[in-house]
Amino acid sequence: MNQIDLIKKIPKAELHLHIEGTFEPELMFEIATRNQVSIRFKTVEELRSAYNFHDLQSFLDLYYEGAKVLIHERDFYDLTMAYLKKCREDHVVHTEIFFDPQTHTERGVAFKTMFDGIYRALADAQKEWGITFHMIMCFLRHLSEESAIETLKEALPYKDKIIAVGLDSGERGNPPHKFERVFKMARDAGFLTVAHAGEEGPAEYIWEALDLLKVKRIDHGVRSDEDEKLIKRLVEEKMPLTVCPLSNIKLCVFKKMTDHNLKKLLQKGVKVTINSDDPAYFGGYMNQNFIEAARDLNLSHQDILTIAKNSFEASFLSEADKKRWIDQVHE
């Protein structure tokens, strides 16, 4: 079996996916027209040509512009269902999606409107296709901790449907310690925690996420190899990294895929997973990330199987469900 066939065949879990980052241009224009919202691009082609980023912030500027067309529950449902169809195509059997309430509540969309649309699509896909899910609510780190605390309060009535809180958006100048208080409040309320760290920010941000935010996973974490002591800790604690190869290239974290340190981290014993991050903007969903990483980093069949197994081990599934899926990851 060749690598591509193996990647397509095996079940996978996706652990680092921003639902707002799955907004394909065609759907964006469709919803913009439906809601009579103007965006600064005239055609799908013009919008796609803008997907040429030089860093995280240049992407975020476009990301937030696209999100403004999402107004009604139906919009969030359509966005989420479009992603879940990609999951079905790529044999992603479990997804733990990030959603950013502040992106929407800051412009007057009710938490309930956004949440109900996303959740309803996830529930429908589980019923129809058997794709299981968890929801992770992220705080926007470029906003204040006070804003994050307000968002946490809004989420409490939905606590039975949100498994964890996370931290995303612009990393530079927004260290994890800025959010130590709200993360403690979230843990005290019973949420698990994860955080973006060590993508554009330094390895020190990973230490902070571990020690101050008490995270169960590090999202990205590719700069951990700048600190051998940190690598040793990640291996000893079996701390997962939710790595997003195509995203890292598109945002110039690495110049090209052959420069990526994913295989090096894997060889050091770090629990690496592969994910698609914001696939509409970064050039590929789950299988495409696997395929390009496998090709350019010369991943073996065993490497591919290990990464897929890691995705279930690192998930928030029950131990029984983890084992059930891991047993199906083989050639």
Rank of each mutant, 00 (worst) to 15 (best):
M257H: 05
L17N: 07
E20K: 03
D75E: 02
S147R: 15
V222E: 07
D55F: 11
R172S: 14
V44T: 05
H177N: 13
G190A: 14
P157C: 12
N174I: 07
Q267P: 09
A320C: 12
L84F: 00
T258P: 03
I218T: 01
E319P: 15
T33G: 14
D168Q: 10
S38I: 13
S224T: 12
E73Q: 15
G269Y: 07
R233P: 11
L27P: 00
I131V: 08
A50I: 03
K159R: 10
F254M: 13
K8G: 06
G166Y: 09
A197H: 07
S144T: 01
E128V: 04
K250I: 02
L47R: 15
R120W: 06
Y83S: 01
M286I: 05
L241K: 14
K271S: 12
G284V: 06
P157E: 08
A280R: 04
F183P: 11
Q57I: 12
G221S: 04
D100C: 11
A82S: 13
I131M: 04
D219H: 05
D225L: 14
A294R: 03
A125C: 08
R217E: 08
K178Q: 10
A67H: 08
I206C: 13
E313V: 13
I4F: 12
G173N: 10
G130Q: 00
G170K: 15
K112D: 03
E65V: 15
T132R: 11
H220G: 04
H301W: 01
E128Q: 13
E145D: 06
S300H: 09
K216T: 14
N174T: 00
A164T: 00
A280F: 01
S169N: 13
K12I: 06
K264C: 03
H260P: 01
F111A: 07
K127L: 12
R233W: 14
R187I: 09
A186D: 06
M81R: 07
L56S: 06
A82K: 10
A280P: 02
S311F: 03
F183Y: 12
C87L: 08
A195R: 12
K184Q: 14
N287W: 01
V165N: 00
R324L: 10
F254N: 09
K42M: 14
P240I: 06
A123D: 14
V92H: 01
E313K: 15
D116Q: 03
P11Q: 08
A209K: 10
F183S: 11
A197N: 14
P240Q: 07
N298T: 12
L266T: 01
A50K: 06
E208P: 10
A82W: 02
A110R: 14
R324G: 05
E237S: 15
D219P: 02
P25I: 04
Y83P: 00
I97W: 09
I249K: 11
H94L: 06
T151H: 10
D321E: 15
K184W: 11
Y83C: 02
D219E: 13
L167G: 04
K112W: 02
V194T: 11
R88Y: 06
L234Q: 10
F115G: 04
H196I: 05
D124Y: 02
